[in-house]
Write a protein that binds this DNA or RNA. Structure first.
Lengths: 251, 251
DNA sequence: CGGAAATTTGAAATCGCTCAATGATAGTGG
DNA sequence: CCACTATCATTGAGCGATTTCAAATTTCCG
C-alpha cells in the first residue's frame, strides 16, 4: 500500500536502490486524524516528515488566533524542511485530512545529502521550486482580490494533483473547510464563503459541498492571473550516477 | 574595493581557498544605475548574480503594470537562484540603488555544488532560510494591516543590515521610493505614503526623507508581529572538510 | 434523533483604493 | 546660480472590497 517515494523531489527520478535508501531513513510511521497537529511552530525540529498519504497544511501563527497557511502539502511531499535552519519549527503542521506520515531524522536526511550528490542536487532544486511557488503565492495575496486568489489557488491544487495522478482532472475534492480555505487565501472565513459562492455563480467552477469541478479552465486561469511556470532545469544538474567523486554510502 | 564574498550563504564560513573558488566563477562585472533592469522575468536565465554592492529588488510582475517585490537583496546576496528551475526567469531583478554585480554562469554554480559538499550544504540551507523569510513575508501581507507590514519590513531590513555590518544601527537609509515601498508592502503608493506618515506620528520611528531612524525597537517589533527566528542549524550540516567521500575537483 | 461543527446570510463599520490635484526635491543645461 | 523639468511626496474626497459581529440554517456524525 506504500506509495512510491519517487516524488521526494521533483528533479530526480530515483532508481530502485536509491528509493530504498530513502525509505531506509524512515524510523516511524504515524497516523493523524483530520485537524490533528503534526508538529507545532517553535517546537524543536529534529525530524522531517514524508507525507505518504493525505493532505497537510503548513501554518505560520500570528498573535490572536490568526494564522496563515503558507503551503498545502499533498501526498509525497516532504514536510518540515524549512525548519532545519531554525532552533524551533518555522511552521505548525496540521492534518487537513486523515494523514499518514513517515518520520525521518534530520541527521539521516543530512547524511543522505552529504553522501549523494544526486539527492543533494534534487533537494536543492526542489527548494528553489518551493521559493518560486511562495513568491507566486505572495504576489497573489498581495496583488489580487479574493476571487482571483481563490481561482489561483484552485488552479494550483489542480495542477499539482495532475502531476501526482499523471492526468488532469477537473474535479477537485478539497478536504479544506472554508475556515481553512480562508487561512490559505488570506481572507476571513465569511468572505471565503461569499467568494466561493460568487465564483460558483460565474460558472467557471461548479460546487457541490467541498467537491469543486472546474468548468472553464482557460477562463479560470485568466482570472487567477498567475504566471505560468514551466519547471525544468538544465542538464548541468543531472548528475549522471555516482563515481564522479561522490559515493552513495559512508566510506 | 571588492567586498568579501563570505556571505554567499549564511551557513558556511568560507576559508580563503574556497572564497577564491567562488570568485573564480565570476565571468563579468556589471554596473547598473538606479531603476535599471538587471534581468527581466521570463527571459532565459543562464546566469546568477552576486550582488557586490547596492540594493536590488526581485519583482513578480502581474498584468496591468502591477507587481510585487518579493525580495529585497542587499550586498553579498546571490540573485536569480530561484530561476534555475525554470525555463524563463521567475522574477524581474531591478536596481534599487546604483549596483555592482558579478555574473556567474549557472553551469559554474552547478559545478561548484556538485564538487563541494560544504558549498552544497550551505546553499541548500540558505535556500531553506529564504523559504522561511518568504513564509513570514506572506503571513505579514496576508494577515496584518499596512502599518504593521511597514513595521515588519523596516525591522527585516534593520536586522539584515545588522548582520552585514556586524552591528545594529537604528538609522536606515532606504533607497526605495514610496512607490517601490508600496510594491514591497503590497499596498498602493498613496497608502504607503499615508502609512509612513502615520507611523512617524506614533513616534516609533523618525523620518527625514528616506532616512528612517528607529526610536523604539521593542515597540516596533511588537507592532510588526513577526515571529522572531533564530537561524542556526545542527552540526550535522557542518561538514568538516573534504575527504568524506567528496572531492573538490572533477574526474 | 440530537448535538456539534460548518456553512450561509445580513447589516454596519473600516481599511485601503482610486482619481485628481498640489507641493517638494533633485538633476540638468544655460 | 537659476530656471526648467521630471520625479517623487503629499493631501483630499468618495468609493469599494473586506471585515466584523451576530444570527440562522444546514450538514455531518455518533
Amino acid at each position: 500500500m506504500k506509495k512510491p517515494i519517487a516524488r521526494l523531489s521533483d528533479f530526480l527520478r530515483l532508481d530502485e536502490a536509491e528509493r530504498q535508501l530513502v525509505e531506509g531513513m524512515t524510523i516511524e510511521t504515524r497516523r493523524y486524524r483530520r485537524h490533528e497537529i503534526i508538529h507545532s511552530q517553535g517546537e524543536p525540529a529534529r525530524e522531517i516528515f514524508y507525507l505518504a498519504d493525505g493532505w497537510a497544511g503548513a501554518c505560520v501563527d500570528v498573535a490572536a488566533g490568526s494564522r496563515q497557511m503558507v503551503k498545502i502539502h499533498l501526498p509525497s511531499d516532504l514536510l518540515g524542511t524549512p525548519s532545519i535552519v531554525l532552533d524551533g519549527a518555522a511552521e505548525t503542521l496540521i492534518a487537513l485530512s486523515p494523514v499518514t506520515i513517515e518520520v525521518i531524522p534530520v541527521s539521516s536526511f543530512a547524511k543522505l545529502f552529504m553522501s549523494s550528490p544526486r539527492h543533494a542536487a534534487a533537494m536543492f532544486l526542489a527548494a528553489q521550486k518551493e521559493r518560486v511557488m511562495l513568491m507566486d503565492r505572495l504576489t497573489s495575496v498581495a496583488r489580487t482580490n479574493a476571487m482571483q486568489r481563490l481561482a489561483a489557488f484552485l488552479l494550483h491544487v489542480h495542477d499539482r494533483l495532475a502531476i501526482i495522478n499523471e492526468e488532469a482532472n477537473p474535479l477537485i475534492e478539497l478536504p479544506l473547510s472554508q475556515e481553512e480555505l480562508a487561512d490559505v487565501l488570506g481572507i476571513t472565513p465569511v468572505h471565503a464563503n461569499r467568494t466561493m459562492a460568487q465564483l460558483d455563480t460565474t460558472g467557471l467552477v461548479e460546487r457541490r459541498g467541498r467537491r469543486i469541478t472546474i468548468k472553464d479552465l482557460p477562463a479560470l486561469r485568466s482570472l487567477g492571473a498567475s504566471p505560468d511556470r514551466k519547471y525544468e532545469c538544465d542538464p548541468e544538474w543531472q548528475v549522471p550516477v555516482p563515481d564522479t567523486g561522490w559515493r552513495t554510502g559512508r566510506s
